[in-house]
Design a protein around this nucleic acid. Structure first.
Lengths: 273, 273
DNA sequence: CTGCGAGTTCAGTATAACTGAACACAGCCA
DNA sequence: TGGCTGTGTTCAGTTATACTGAACTCGCAG
């Protein structure tokens, strides 16, 4: 499992908006390795363009990461498919939509569109992470993971409490994820922030795998009166994105099993050819 | 120089918009290493989130790269400082502006704004690379590199010819870069595409280092009549961005030496305290 | 059913990476 | 100005790492 590469990745993950610049000694202390080792890692990463040296011998993230990210976005159909549908959602409701993926057991926000009627959600943001057990998108994404994965995640990150409504026990989480998987959507009822609710639904790729989740965030006082309409709206929007990605659900409201056949192009594997 | 990390970075750089998905065998062939080695690299990178496995055992870029890129953009003052000034430039001229950095001896486009009067420049694009010897931004960036670096770059990538005007000999390049450095801006006179010209100027950070270049691209028939005004416009815009980054040039038109003092905040190092 | 090609695993060996101390350099305080 | 503490950087020896190449499994096609 190439420990050297693991360490290099650890180094990259040290760089955050809070501390975007690191020196050799700091990295050595953070990873608990000798200075010379940290030095070698930083030098190599800088030589490869993944980091860049500042004048004073410290390091920042390198532009190659920007390039790779653009390549990712360019080659990923997800954002291209989701953005117009999110825009329509925002235009119709005036609220905030999120698009998120699961990375390393946490929710990574990939896109966020704010409506004119929306309240500012400062916690979420494009490129930011949040724990998965509390948000709507997080619960959707966890619900479609093997339970053992969920357990591992919970054991490492714990079930941090944000509000009185946050899920804090494994048993609660298990039951909630079970329900989310079966009904095909999730609610966040003031679990991450008092006064904020959301409805979220899964997005599947052509193989039927859940690769992302979409949500519509709404102030609590506007959520409960419109819960039903909100639910169908987000479920429908997520389904449309999934279809754009080549997924076609077998029979809605029952089967969450195998796919039948894609309506998208570039898919002619099995029978004839 | 941690060869394992170098190989890992090589693997990442294999992923392009043209081929965003790689299998073990393909990677092994591309890097000329045994399959098991490629397998270990891919597995490790995927475990770290820098890659993701598709269902069929192939690999794509991972969302962690998106996260890192967002952190880079968030912590880099460059784009934040440049964007409004580029917008004003576009609003005033109706042409296309580019913002680019030098990565690995090539020009990496970081931002691109198109005006309403502009012609579509298909070659450039955010996240795309081009050789440095032909474009305006490229010549600006090379001009402020040590000549030995430039030589190394030229020896590896060569001086590819795009149009009859493209610089193709080292001597031409040397003279041009010398002029660009002294006059503080560069022209591209149909060197990358027939009918397309541009003027470009360097952007410096608070230490005086050239970290990026900005350009204004114009059809040839509109370039020559307005060359003087274009030049002052782009030089002025780049200077404003540099000042935003904390650079204050000593005395314009002569000294390119040390800085005197920043007018930006967060800088009170030397005398008192 | 068989063969080819994909991805994956494993044990032994060669070599790459880690260690820790010494070096160079800058800024800061006396 | 002169040490002093804190950087980043270098190096040689040793350990433990990563590479090798063949064997294995699985899916698809003939």
């Amino acid at each position: 499992m190439l420990q050297t590469v693991q360490k290099a990745a650890q180094v990259l993950r040290l760089f955050t908006p809070q501390q975007p610049e690191w020196g050799v000694t700091e990295v050595a202390a953070a990873l608990e390795i000798p200075k010379s080792g940290a030095h070698a890692l930083l030098r190599t990463l800088a030589a490869e363009g993944l980091l860049q040296r500042t004048g004073n011998g410290r390091y920042r993230l390198g532009w190659t990461l920007f390039e790779l990210s653009q390549t990712l976005l360019d080659s990923s159909a997800l954002l291209r498919a989701a953005r117009p549908i999110m825009e329509r959602l925002v235009a119709g409701w005036g609220e905030t939509t999120h698009l998120a993926v699961l990375v390393d057991g946490q929710v990574l926000y990939v896109e966020k569109l704010q409506g004119d009627r929306a309240l500012e959600i400062v916690l979420s943001g494009v490129g930011k992470r949040l724990p998965a057990h509390c948000s709507g998108v997080g619960k959707v994404l966890l619900a479609h993971q093997p339970w053992e994965n969920v357990l591992r995640i919970v054991e490492t990150t714990g079930l941090v409490s944000f509000t009185p409504n946050t899920i804090t026990t494994v048993e609660q989480l298990r039951a909630e994820l079970e329900r989310v998987r079966q009904q095909g959507f999730a609610y966040d009822q003031e679990e991450v922030m008092v006064g904020l609710c959301c409805a979220a639904a899964p997005i599947r790729d052509e193989s039927g795998q859940v690769i992302a989740a979409m949500s519509l965030s709404v102030p609590a006082y506007r959520f409960y009166p419109n819960q039903q309409r909100l639910t169908t709206a987000i479920v429908d929007a997520a389904r449309r994105v999934s279809e754009e990605l080549g997924y076609y659900q077998e029979d809605w409201a029952w089967g969450n099993g195998k796919r039948s056949k894609s309506r998208s192009s570039g898919q002619a594997t099995s029978v004839l050819t």
